[in-house]
Design a protein around this nucleic acid. Structure first.
Lengths: 178, 178
DNA sequence: GGCAGATTTAGAACTTTATCAAAAAAAACA
DNA sequence: TGTTTTTTTTGATAAAGTTCTAAATCTGCC
């Protein structure tokens, strides 16, 4: 079993997840400028995290069923986030505030180790992401991500994947044909 | 004082740093395929970490005096690394093996917290890096990194900065002029 | 199921950046 | 310091992806 579902289950057993109202398609869970240090668990549905730089949207990550999603910059710093988080379809979430979460994590060595492992995994995943983005050829960027996350291409509209892959929807469409 | 120098000092007080032979300019500390789980502290000099994808080099990060450098993928997974690490000038390092380091970290709660804080900082820095790389305009990528790491442009040949910024040396040169 | 809106595909023109070649400048090192 | 090597700059050309527009297809939702 993977680290995230393990974490989910432990928080669940401790009864620490709180309900959160269902999001409808295109609804925003958060917008830039607000401070949100909660962690969200995706019970069902899909979301994307994105930033806006000078009128341009850049998708940073996706969350599907079984993912944990957060405004990670806010979560780490406690300051307002640059991120937008938007549901791409009807989405059910559970939520845990950072303070509750940190108490949970600190409450025993096993939990602390688990959180530590997850942080390490996040660093590693970000390193893979960095390599994806450094790859100069759009075709290779597409192939790298397709290989690692094939389900992504089933789950979300390709215009968002294009934004994630640093290319236009037109370019992605042409790559798919070839 | 920043987290890295704090960590350095604590390891130093514990007498855990080991000497490492001086690297001369252009010499490789490691090449792809080898497993290296050590942490290196840069006493003096400069290094770069890079990968090679299909004949193309991509610079991932730089290390200067006071930095800690590692083949982070190896460090995390214990498996062979994709990274090359190269000295860009005469460089003095100190070294600590991962096993020694993990014992040190686990030895008390304060050390564990410090390592935890550093992992968090790494995640945050990788998020900034992701945003840099997503930025489509070369000029803006240049400006973002110049603002955050102005000393970089003093320390290392610009052809490596170009590789870090995902552009050719020619493009970087033209940006600087304008 | 059918309509409306959203997404994807397609083609043409345009921009931008990479590539290539060579000169100029800077840095290494003997 | 002088010489050699490396790096940076400059200009010309070419390639790649973007932009714009419009048509085709798909999807959500009533």
């Amino acid at each position: 079993m993977n680290l995230i579902s393990h974490l989910h289950d432990k928080i669940d057993t401790a009864g620490l997840w709180e309900d959160y109202p269902e999001l409808s398609r295109n609804e925003h869970l958060k917008v830039r400028g607000s401070t949100d240090t909660r962690l969200y668990y995706v019970v069902s549905g899909t979301l994307r995290v994105y930033v806006i730089d000078e009128f341009e949207e850049h998708t940073i990550r996706f969350g599907y069923q079984g993912s944990i999603i957060a405004a990670l910059d806010s979560f780490i710093t406690g300051k307002p986030s640059d991120f937008y988080i938007q549901a791409l379809k009807k989405t059910e979430l559970k939520m845990i505030p950072k303070t509750t979460y940190m108490e949970f994590v600190q409450s025993n060595a096993e939990n602390l180790q688990l959180w530590h492992d997850i942080l390490e995994q996040m660093v590693y995943q970000q390193m893979e992401r960095e390599r994806d983005l450094l790859t100069s050829s759009p075709l290779e960027r597409y192939e790298r991500v397709l290989k690692r996350s094939p389900q992504l291409f089933q789950e979300v509209p390709h215009k968002y994947i294009a934004s994630y892959l640093r290319m236009t929807p037109e370019t992605l469409s042409r790559i798919k044909k070839s």
